[in-house]
């Protein structure tokens, strides 16, 4: 039965990743560990962003907003009252802000929870009407969150941002939650909910004609995305140990969009592959910014060349693999034998 084989493939990958995390944490150097942490966090963001954009086919620009919410909720709950006292330099913080405190797990859960609540609020006006309002609404939402962060310094310390966030994030947290996120998304996709989401993507009218509650399908996808984006934001705050509003701009969302399109819109495996290529690749390509030796001739340092080459590679890949690297396929499809042909 193919199902059993798929489960074995997935399971062995999960154990492989867990083993890798254990080894990496003990033997790899700080820099590599930092990059792996980034990859883990962005994997969480990418697989959940892929759920609404790729699997459900609803074009959304929400990540920077929900990640910001998650980052700020976690930061406010983790930074100590003393640290808050001397950090809030624009105006004094509200008393409730000073009293906010929780442990890491609670902070992450609340980050996800608040993001999900806001996603629910957005879902009702956007998904009840037909039409492509989601992109505009989420784009505006991201801006509003950033403006809120800047203009309410009594809560967020404005553009100064929050520093001295305890560094709770390590490979066990980021990697572990990444595994949970991937498994959750895959379990959703391989269930009636995932089928409904794909049906909405493929043909919304036909989906309705088959009894699918398309509003519910879209809302589930959007809220799940928001939840993991909030948690990812919390992990990011506890990794960088300092956050500020300028971190959560449109370019942040754009980066994730590149990742999921490159990996294959609709494929969870693709989102993971895309994250590794983009986050790992752009660091690996730093040598392009430095002087390089060619047959005895040394080129001068050209900062920014790295990004030019990166963009060229992206264009190249999209020209030859228009559906992204994985297309809509998942890991198990790579191991399948010859496709059963339809006669």
């Amino acid at each position: 039965m193919t199902v059993k084989k798929d489960q074995w493939i997935n399971l062995s990958f999960v154990f492989g990743v867990i083993g890798f995390i254990g080894i990496a944490n003990s033997f790899f150097d700080e820099y590599t560990i930092r990059i792996l942490n980034n990859i883990a966090i962005f994997t969480i963001l990418a697989v959940s962003y892929n759920l609404i954009n790729g699997v459900t086919g609803q074009f959304s620009l929400e990540p920077n907003g929900f990640v910001a919410i998650g980052a700020y909720v976690t930061a406010l709950l983790l930074v100590s009252p003393e640290a808050k006292q001397y950090q809030y330099a624009i105006v004094d913080p509200y008393p409730f802000v000073l009293s906010l405190h929780a442990n890491f797990v609670v902070a992450l859960v609340l980050s996800g929870f608040f993001a999900t609540c806001l996603a629910l609020v957005l879902s009702f006006p956007v998904f009840r009407v037909r039409g492509d309002y989601l992109a505009i609404v989420t784009l505006g939402f991201g801006f509003i969150i950033k403006i809120f962060a800047i203009n309410y310094p009594e809560v967020t310390n404005g553009s100064l941002g929050l520093n001295d966030i305890p560094e709770f994030s390590n490979l066990y947290w980021t990697g572990g939650i990444a595994i949970i996120a991937v498994i959750t998304v895959l379990n959703i996709v391989n269930s009636k909910f995932g089928r409904a989401m794909k049906a909405v993507r493929d043909d919304e009218d036909a989906a309705i004609a088959m009894g699918v509650n398309t509003f519910k399908a879209k809302t589930f996808a959007f809220c799940t995305s928001a939840f993991f984006e909030g948690v990812g934001g919390g992990l990011l705050a506890a990794l960088l140990t300092s956050i500020s509003p300028d971190l959560f701009d449109f370019f942040f969302t754009f980066q994730l969009l590149i990742i999921i399109v490159l990996g294959g819109l609709g494929s969870t495996t693709g989102a993971i592959v895309g994250t590794i290529l983009v986050m790992g690749g752009s660091e690996w390509m730093r040598f392009l910014d430095e002087p390089m030796k060619f047959f005895g001739y040394t080129t001068p340092a050209m900062p920014g060349l790295r990004m030019v080459v990166f963009s060229l590679i992206l264009i190249f890949i999209m020209l030859f693999a228009r559906e992204g690297i994985m297309g809509k396929k998942e890991l198990k499809d790579l191991f399948k034998g010859r496709k059963r042909s339809a006669k």
Binding site: N187, S191, F193, R195, K198, A199, D202, M210, G211, G266
Partner: peptide
């Protein structure tokens, strides 16, 4: 109007989905 990204089986399953009695959380876990 069949669902273009899905298999024959999945297309038919869509018809059954509202009759499948499990919740979102039961699916995830």
């Amino acid at each position: 109007r069949l669902f273009s990204s899905m298999s024959v089986l999945d297309n038919v399953l869509i018809g059954f989905d509202f009759q499948a009695r499990y919740s979102f959380f039961e699916a995830i876990s």
